[in-house]
């Protein structure tokens, strides 16, 4: 089971790097993140300086001033980038008919889907690992609270996993990569913005919408809180996405 999944995952992970996808996505991500980190940092420094100059008491902490906006922005960038990472996973295999190789190999559908999902997750993990430079810079120059950094990373990883499961699902629906990518982005954005409706919805509906919103579950992580409700929500969201993919591909074989 694990070996089969790993065969698929490692092949797909490698193929991100044999095509330009990984380099473009990672480079774009790092440029934007670097700019954001620089902007946050200099803004924070300026604010701190002003507070000291005019004796206005203590400025915002590193967590509130740098870490939270940094990871919050990172989540938005992942929302944009994930469609480019996942759109090819099944759509390309269907288009090129290479899916026949996977479907006639002695693998279960679950192993194939998990392998694809893990390959995209590994790429995200690489990208996230590259952003460790920012907390390290902060640790060298200042004294940031490590708790929120840790939980922000966990939260980001889980939230992005939800985007990935959406991406895998939409990629299994079509053989057109653009369609898969566009649908992934639209759906991700929808589950992000769904919490906006809570203000106008009734009490019950606002609770439901709030619960369904991907971003509302992220708030605790950004504050250094690790809540089982949020972890459970993200994991079940991913499970549902992959489960639906399984149904789609199972029925694809019948056509």
């Amino acid at each position: 089971m694990i070996r089969n999944t790993w065969v698929v995952a490692s092949k797909d992970f490698k193929s991100y790097f044999t095509s330009p996808i990984a380099y473009i996505v990672i480079a774009g991500f790092m440029v934007i993140m670097g700019w954001m980190f620089f902007f946050n940092l200099s803004h924070f420094n300026m604010q701190n300086l002003q507070y000291q100059q005019f004796n206005m008491g203590k400025a915002a902490s590193i967590t509130d001033g740098i870490i939270r906006p940094l990871y919050g922005n990172m989540n938005v960038i992942f929302l944009f980038l994930v469609p480019f990472i996942t759109m090819r996973l099944f759509a390309e295999e269907k288009k090129n008919k290479t899916i026949a190789l996977l479907f006639t190999a002695p693998l279960t559908l679950t192993e194939i889907i998990l392998g694809k999902f893990i390959s995209s997750y590994l790429l995200i993990a690489v990208m996230l690992a590259l952003t460790f430079t920012y907390p390290i810079i902060l640790m060298i120059t200042g004294n940031p609270d490590l708790g929120p950094i840790l939980t922000s990373n966990i939260g980001t990883l889980l939230l992005t996993g939800c985007y990935l499961s959406l991406g895998v699902f939409f990629s299994s629906l079509t053989e057109n990569q653009i369609v898969a990518g566009a649908l992934t982005f639209a759906a991700g954005l929808f589950f992000w913005l769904i919490s906006w409706a809570t203000q106008s919805a009734g009490p019950v509906w606002s609770d439901i919408l709030m619960y369904l919103s991907l971003i509302s579950h992220y708030n605790n992580f950004s504050q250094g809180l690790l809540s089982s409700t949020d972890v459970f929500f993200y994991l079940s969201f991913m499970f549902l996405g992959l489960f639906l993919t399984h149904r789609v591909l199972d029925s694809y074989r019948w056509r």
Binding site: S15, S19, N96, T98, I99, A100, L101
Partner: peptide, 9 residues
Amino acid sequence: PETPPVYGE
């Protein structure tokens, strides 16, 4: 299969 299931890359 009819179309060889090969990955060009």
